[in-house]
Design a protein around this nucleic acid. Structure first.
Lengths: 349, 349
DNA sequence: TTGTAAGCGTTATCAT
DNA sequence: ATGATAACGCTTACAA
């Protein structure tokens, strides 16, 4: 009942076939009111007979809605990004919209190009840890919601509190010599400084402190975390615990410890940040500060959809609490915590 | 030097500003030959002054190239998908194109809708483990390359050989009672039957065999793999080794073993399939059959770009070999293999 | 080297 | 309830 071959069927063809005007066909397609049931039937039939498919470009050009949200994210293979997007896609789909995802290779120039492309194609934009403020590119006509950076509308986590939780946990375990693998040198404007601030604040309050030589940058990557940890762990008086700015760099820390022959958590405690799905699978399973990424993605999508519909959103800056997830990578200094053999791995489907 | 506010700057505006015709501006934008350097300069300046951004929809509608490749994938948070796409994005970017990623929630209807949307928007389409043959939607005008299913142009791995490798490895270790967690009930047309065929073939050749009751379906998911493994491991004579149709279901097998108090690899050997990045991070690290996913993604992108340029591709069906990656989840039955404490985790950046 | 004219397929506006 | 017409912003002819 569909396609005949190569030529493209247009709205005009359908109109001719149904013996009505283009406008009527358009109205039927867009589920608008104001036509005989009989007419609607006839048009529907013509559509199916001809195998008509709407031309998205023409629709946009004519000022119609595209029912499309654009996403600009640095990379597609970062778990932080995919978990966020997974949460968003649910909501978007339920609202009858689509999500078009674009990556920038973590590059400011490319990010700008993507923004310019999307500007005319989508009804709204979701910016994930952007490198620049792209608000200017989009102008007031296209709503923008940002995750992991500043913006007119944002979804975020209380990173300062997250940093504090990490510090409290390590202090509670008895650690007094604690290092940090930071995320300061990223391309993105997101530099995890709030996490560091909260962490340092809590350590200072406990009289433990965080001297500069116990901070090394991990650039949010496994390789960066590994290098940073090697630096910290080669110190004359090496730290008994390390807090990493995200889970990926924490995995790098685990790797460095393994290579240096240090047992985690016996010789070194490690705390990550994010609680991406791999965090529950590592050897040992990673204690981490959880960001509810899927929920955040869903919240961002909801906010964006509200803006597109010109509704007034409940909050312009929904903010989620961070939480501590204790697994097997932390223990009191110099003491083995017997691993629980029946601890289930994190559920995921 | 850019935007003035809300109104949208068009090509005509730039032309007026530069004192030339629209055509000349268009030529400058598309880097075409045939104009005075002076004219080009003037136009360039006008473009920057006005903050002009080309309207993608109009360009497409007028028959221009969009320089956009569309991707249709079931989900964004499956490592198989993201690693493939990561490989593709490199190539696409180098060719000066963009990648627009759409997900289908593993749903045939949605897949069809995405296909219809993309049809008029992109220059070519990459189909990742599609549920249906979307060739008919696109027609001959839009090139389509498929990964993980059949099609006019495909990129694949020798799955039969991969299955054989898994069997050989387990046989070499001395296993004689071997189970399989299959991937037969997926929505996608990809049912991993080649993996199973190669696996069974090798077991049969060795006189070990693979009776039906030693096969349970894991639906390619962690939860499915867990359930399937529980079935297999509850058998009166339980298998000493399990081969899973992919790494995600293999992780489910590990989880089931953990819950049943079985130690891997002492009591149970586990082999996965894919070698996604998490495979090197699990407890214990997963022995698996590797698909070179990033390379495959790159190959798919290259093939698609060649088709768009109407070049004749070197091969319509590039095929990659599978390979065995031995880690810590396999050992001879009933024997503990001492773990190597200094084995580095898989590199990843 | 540059300009003119037509049209891509849809929607909005205004008639009927 | 339905139709005619004019945009939308660009590109591909073809003309100058």
């Amino acid at each position: 009942m569909e396609e005949t071959g190569s030529r493209t069927v247009s709205l005009a063809d359908v109109a001719r076939l149904a013996g009505v005007s283009k406008m009527t066909v358009s109205n039927v397609i867009n589920n608008r009111e104001g036509m005989t049931e009989q007419t609607r039937q006839r048009v529907q039939q013509a559509i199916e007979q001809s195998g008509y498919v709407a031309n998205a470009a023409a629709r946009v050009l004519a000022g119609g809605r595209m029912n499309l949200l654009g996403v600009i994210a640095p990379r597609i293979n970062w778990p932080y990004v995919t978990e966020l997007l997974h949460g968003a896609s649910r909501v978007v789909e339920q609202a009858g919209l689509d999500l078009a995802i674009f990556t920038t290779s973590d590059n400011v120039r490319v990010e700008r190009e993507r923004a310019m492309l999307l500007r005319t194609l989508v009804d709204g934009v979701l910016l994930i840890i952007p490198a620049a403020d792209e608000q200017t590119v989009f102008g007031p006509a296209v709503p923008v919601v940002t995750v992991g950076s500043a913006g007119a509308y944002t979804v975020s986590v209380d990173d300062r509190q997250g940093g504090r939780l990490a510090a409290q946990h390590l202090l509670d375990l008895g650690h007094r010599h604690i290092g940090h693998v930071s995320g300061l040198s990223s391309v993105s404007r997101h530099d995890a400084s709030d996490r560091l601030d909260g962490f340092a604040q809590e350590l200072n309050a406990a009289g433990v402190g965080l001297p500069p030589h116990l901070i090394a940058d991990g650039a949010f990557t496994e390789a960066g975390g590994e290098a940073a940890a090697r630096t910290l762990l080669s110190l004359p008086e090496r730290p008994t615990a390390i807090f990493a700015a995200n889970d990926r760099s924490a995995i790098g820390v685990l790797r460095a410890a393994e290579q240096l022959g240090l047992r985690v958590p016996h010789d070194l405690s490690v705390v990550g940040y994010d609680d991406v799905q791999v965090a529950s699978l590592t050897r040992p399973a990673l204690t981490t500060i959880r960001q509810p990424l899927e929920e955040m993605g869903a919240a961002a999508a909801r906010l964006l959809i509200a803006l597109i519909r010109r509704e007034v959103p409940e909050q312009a800056h929904p903010r989620f609490p961070a939480s501590l997830v204790v697994r097997d990578s932390t223990a009191p200094p110099g003491v083995v915590q017997p691993p629980d053999p029946v601890r289930p791995m994190k559920g995921a489907t």
